[in-house]
Write a protein that binds this DNA or RNA. Structure first.
Length: 434
RNA sequence: GCGACUGUAGCUCAGCGGUAGAGCUCUCGGUUGUGGUCCGAGCGGUCGCGGGUUCGAACCCCGUCAGUCGCCCCA
């Protein structure tokens, strides 16, 4: 009697988003714009495998990262001796490996961009997924790398983000040497836990920050000096007037001044020196970046971050290869906008089709296909609605997919219907061009 | 990994101890002026899963899994 199909009920996997065609279309538009911006500054594209050897990903000793390892289902006893693979956690480390591995074939300073998925095994929430796209640009050079690149990258990023129509963005820039110099001058060793606390300055009350720092064993005077420095925000001149305690600090101030000064052409809200920016990742050694969406106060995280790293690739080759890079948190940006400000996303039609060609009955198919070819040659995206159905069906389909025109044959030639106003008129398809 | 909350139709949810419901979506038909409106019909659910209590469980209890939000961390 009942021969019901067995159905495995699909459910979304948390943190692994997928979009509808109309959302994907916007995503593709964003990718195109970002790619064009990067290439306009002479960056070339590379792609690295989704997986790296675990040893490569952990080369910088960041073992606490939430990395997905992969494994064959038909794994057998003894297969353990294969090197373990894992999905890459970011694109910076694979890029460093790539640069070292292809060192002899690359031209330096090596400027590349990379737009790929990365994976992190963390609990998802708004703007945080487990599988997401990042758009990275980095420059790596041999032995030394001009500080001018530290300023060029944020300029490129600003241009890329500004073109997406997502409201005002603000790049916040600091230089780790400034805070590190201060800590050094006070003979404080545990940089990592201090910087983690500084990182929360925007989130917590001053009292709480004070307490956290004191819990680390700092004196009241030390805490005061650190907080006074970390709360400095402003333009190039503000940074220039900071008093240096030692050479390291002085270097940091000079570098940050130089970077901010080179970015003076950006709108005032677009870039700011902010000494509370220190970044969690421990391989950054100089300039560090974060980016805020000024018009989305509900989301305070950074949508685009990066920094200068002195020798990330040096672990893979016996050379000194300093670099600087920034990564747009593409999926974070898209997701945050989608959830908080869907109008800004400019979700449009459900397909790229410009013209639907109407087939009245199956005898007309060859004619329809041929006219579609003509229109495609004229630059349009054209689809033929093959099922032979009533005119109303065609209209409904065209309407639902928000296709602007229907083209249909008449005794002599063709007519087109403009879906925006219902107007129908004869058309010479050879002369109808995009 | 930790904490709080939530799992019923494709989606949004009602039902809270007595035969599984609504709206939307979808399919088909009718009305209409060639898209809209309106009308009718149909498709669609082991009530997350496993156990327990009960004459009887979507509902109460225990466990488990999944999800959402927050923390940690970060794009």
């Amino acid at each position: 009697m009942s021969d019901k199909k067995k159905i495995y009920k699909p459910k979304p996997i948390s943190g692994f988003p997928e979009w509808l065609p109309e959302e994907r279309l916007v995503e593709q538009r964003w990718f195109d714009h970002i790619r064009k911006t990067f290439e306009s500054y002479g960056f070339c594209s590379i792609e690295t495998p989704s997986v790296e050897e675990v040893d490569v990903l952990l080369a910088k000793g960041e073992v606490d990262k939430e990395i997905y390892a992969i494994e064959r289902i038909h794994k057998e006893e003894g297969d353990d001796k294969e090197s373990r693979l894992a999905l890459h956690f970011d694109q910076t480390v694979p890029f460093a490996r790539y640069t070292a591995q292809h060192f002899n074939e690359l031209v330096f300073p090596f400027k590349r961009y990379q737009m790929q998925r990365v994976w992190r095994g963390e609990r998802p929430q708004m703007g945080r997924q487990r599988e997401f796209y990042q758009c990275d640009i980095d420059v790596i050079n041999v032995d030394n790398l001009s500080i001018a690149y530290d300023a060029e990258l944020p300029a490129i990023i600003y241009e890329a983000l500004d073109g997406l129509d997502i409201g005002r963005v603000q790049l916040r820039i600091s230089n780790r040497k400034i805070l590190m110099g201060l800590l050094e001058s006070m003979d404080i060793k545990d940089h990592v836990s201090i910087t983690r606390i500084i990182d929360k300055i925007e989130k917590l009350e001053t009292d709480q920050i004070n307490q956290l720092l004191k819990d680390e064993g700092l004196s009241g005077e030390q805490v005061g000096k650190i907080l006074k420095l970390a709360k400095i925000k402003g333009n190039a001149d503000v940074i220039r007037n900071i008093e240096a305690e030692n050479g390291l600090m002085s270097d940091g101030i000079d570098e940050l001044y130089s970077v901010l000064d080179s970015l003076a052409h950006l709108p005032e809200h677009g870039v700011i020196g902010d000494l509370s920016i220190v970044r969690g990742l421990d391989y950054y050694t100089g300039t560090v970046y974060e980016t805020q969406l000024l018009d989305v106060p509900q989301f305070t995280g950074s949508v685009c971050s990066g920094g200068r790293y002195d020798d990330l690739a040096g672990g893979f080759i016996n050379k000194h290869l300093p670099g600087v890079g920034i990564s747009i948190g593409f999926s974070r940006l898209f997701d945050v906008l989608r959830q908080t400000n869907p109008d800004k996303l400019g979700i449009g039609p459900k397909s790229p089709t410009d013209i639907l060609v109407y087939v009245e009955n199956s005898d007309d198919s060859p004619k329809a296909n041929e006219s579609a070819r003509t229109l495609r040659a004229n630059g349009f995206n054209v689809e033929v609605y093959h099922p032979v159905k009533k005119w109303e069906k065609h209209l409904k389909y065209t309407e639902k997919k928000q296709i602007p025109f229907i083209c249909y044959p008449k005794e002599s030639g063709f007519e087109r219907k403009d879906m925006s106003n219902g107007l129908q008129e004869p058309v010479d398809i050879k002369e109808w061009k995009k």
